[in-house]
Design a protein around this nucleic acid. Structure first.
Lengths: 110, 110
DNA sequence: ATACTATATCGCAAATATACGATTATATAA
DNA sequence: TTATATAATCGTATATTTGCGATATAGTAT
């Protein structure tokens, strides 16, 4: 963008946006799904399942880490990831208090 | 991107990503908040409240419409928007069934 | 008809995101 | 040590997003 105006918005607004941004790509949704579905944490199995190169998957994992949607751990030569449910819960809470407060599903509306 | 791989992911994955994408910018979060908070639908009042030019706000509104997060209605020279709660509910449902199914907040995990 | 108001659209510039191959770093195996 | 395997990072090309001013469009008022 010509200028980045994100700093002009509130902390909560940015937090919600950042969370949403982390899951705003189908590849990252698919990665989260894979991690959530497995009993134990996984790593490069994701690469086998997704239609993306290893480096691309690694980049997406990095973004998910940055947004704290997942936790990562090195295990020998492998890397192991799991869902950070705390962040999901926090998001759900913030999301609800942000949007549902004034919401009586207004019938006056268009 | 070099190539767009979004078509290689499932419908559900893309739906979740699209919804998230619509709220992945603090300006759009702020716009949704404004609309949700008012009794009646509003229009260019948003422009007064946000630190963005009128054309930029209009663009964001267009995106929110496209994602069906809001409904719009023309009222004279003014445009009137309101939250499309149906989409929010649908998202919540999809989100939960997608991520919470296998989730026992796995203690084996890192 | 003319002026005014509100909003959408267009065209452009700059910033970010996506994707990949090549390379690097680290751990394990031989 | 050397080879192998796994995953992160770098460099780069391209696509998309963000933002604004200018313009277009359409309703309302004079």
């Amino acid at each position: 963008m010509a200028q980045n105006k994100k700093g002009e918005f509130s902390k909560k607004e940015n937090e919600l946006a950042d969370f949403a941004n982390a899951i705003s790509h189908p590849a990252r949704v698919a990665i989260l799904k894979q991690i959530a579905d497995r009993e134990t944490c996984i790593c490069g199995e994701i690469v086998e399942v997704l239609p993306l190169a290893q480096s691309t998957v690694s980049q997406h994992l990095k973004e998910l880490l940055k947004a704290e949607l997942i936790n990562g751990e090195v295990d020998g030569t492998k890397s192991c990831y799991c869902i950070n449910w705390k962040t999901f819960e926090k998001f759900e809470k913030t999301f609800n208090e942000f949007f549902k407060k004034a919401n009586s599903h207004n019938p006056k509306c268009c």
